[in-house]
Write a protein that binds this DNA or RNA. Structure first.
Lengths: 190, 190
DNA sequence: CTGGCATGTCAACGCTTGTTGGCCTACATT
DNA sequence: AATGTAGGCCAACAAGCGTTGACATGCCAG
C-alpha cells in the first residue's frame, strides 16, 4: 500500500479545467452572470459535466473558491513592521490569481459568498490581531478595521478600477496603507 | 404663467413608487437579482409600466441611482477636523437611505454602475482633496485613498455585515477612521 | 474477446427573465 | 355629452437559465 490515496483518474484534468474556467468567470462576472454554460464552453466540455462533478452551481462555486490567505509567520519579524508586511502580502495574494477578486465580486450579491468572506477574513486576520493587539478582547474589532482598509483598496484597485488606485505602484500602496493597518493593529483604543 | 414647468401629472405618484421600489431592490439584491417583475410587484403595478416610464432595466437603474453625496462646506471648519467631519458625514449619508448601498452592490457586477461610482467618488471627494491637500497634483490620488477606506468600511458594515463592524457605534467608527482619512488628506507624501 | 465502468455528448424539461403590443378604463377638455 | 388621450392591465413572446436523463464512446480488467 504505497499509494493509500485515490489513484489519479483520467477526469482530473477535466475537473481542473472546469475549476479554472469557473474561477475566471466568477472573478470577471460575479455569481449570477457567470453561467454554467459559459464556464463549460470555456473548459471545452458539456454543461452537464459540471453538474456531474460538482452537483450544482453553488457546489461549483464552493469548490472554486477554497481559499487560504496564507498569512506569513509574523512572530519572527519586528512588531513595528507588521502593517507593511501584511499590506504587501495581501497585494501579492490579490494579484497572484483571480480567486480573491472573484470572492469579493460574488460575496456582494450572494449570501453564501458573504459568509465565506466573513469566515476567511475575520478568522485569518483575527489570528494575527490576537497576537499583536494590546487589548486581546478587541482582537475581532481590530481585525475588521484592518479588513475594511484592505478590502476597500482591493475594491478600488481590482474591481471598481479607480484610475489613480490602479496606477499606484506596489510600494506606493504599501507606503500609504501600512501606517493605517499598523495603527489598527497596535495603537491604543482611541 | 406662474408654472412654466410641466404640470404635475397623475402618473407622478406611480413613477415615484417604482423608483422607491427599485432603489430598495437594487440595494438589497444587486443588479441581476433585482428583477423588474419583483420591483413592479413591490410598487403594486404591472411590469410593463416600468418599461413605459423608464425604457428598459438599465434606464430604470440610472434613474434610481442619481446621487449627490452632498459633501458639506468645509472652508468654515478647522482643517484639523476635516477627517472626522468627512467620516461622520458619510456614515449619515450611508444610513440615511439605501441608494449608496445599492450603488455599491450594483457597481461590483455592472460596468455602468462602476463608472457611475468612479465619477461620484473621484469627483466629489476630489473636490475636497483639491482644497486641503498639500500637494495639489496629488489630489486625485488622495481622493482615491480616502474612498478606499470609506468604501471599505461601508462594505464591511452595510454589505458583508461583519459582526464587529455592524456593532461599532457611530462615534467608535469615527474615532478609528478619522485619523486615517485625515492623514490621507493632509499628510506629506510618504 | 467480452463485460463493466468511467467519461462525455445530446436533446430536452420547466422556469424565469426582459420586453412588446393590444386592449380596457377613466379622466380632462371641448 | 362626446371624444381624445394618458394610465394601467393582461397575455404572450423569444431567449437564456440550471438541471436532468438517455444514449454513445472509450478504456481497462477478466
Amino acid at each position: 500500500m504505497t499509494e493509500p490515496a485515490t489513484a489519479p483518474r483520467r477526469s482530473d484534468a477535466t475537473k481542473a479545467a472546469i475549476l479554472d474556467a469557473a474561477r475566471e468567470r466568477f472573478a470577471a462576472d460575479g455569481y449570477e452572470r457567470a453561467t454554467i454554460r459559459a464556464i463549460a464552453r470555456d473548459a471545452n466540455i458539456d454543461p452537464s459535466m459540471v453538474m456531474r462533478y460538482y452537483g450544482n452551481k453553488e457546489g461549483l462555486f464552493v469548490a472554486a473558491s477554497s481559499i487560504d490567505l496564507r498569512i506569513p509567520e509574523l512572530g519572527a519579524l519586528p512588531g513595528k513592521h507588521v502593517g507593511a508586511v501584511l499590506v504587501g502580502h495581501f497585494l501579492d495574494r490579490w494579484e497572484g490569481d483571480d480567486v480573491l477578486t472573484g470572492m469579493l465580486r460574488v460575496s456582494v450579491t450572494n449570501e453564501a459568498g458573504a459568509e465565506r468572506m466573513r469566515a476567511i477574513f475575520a478568522g485569518q486576520i483575527g489570528a494575527v490581531t490576537a497576537g499583536v493587539c494590546p487589548v486581546p478582547a478587541e482582537a475581532a474589532r481590530r481585525a475588521v478595521l484592518v479588513a475594511s482598509q484592505i478590502l476597500g483598496m482591493a475594491l478600488a484597485r481590482y474591481v471598481l478600477r479607480f484610475g489613480p488606485a490602479v496606477e499606484m505602484s506596489r510600494d506606493e500602496v504599501i507606503a500609504w496603507l501600512a501606517p493605517t493597518v499598523q495603527r489598527y493593529l497596535t495603537a491604543e483604543t482611541p
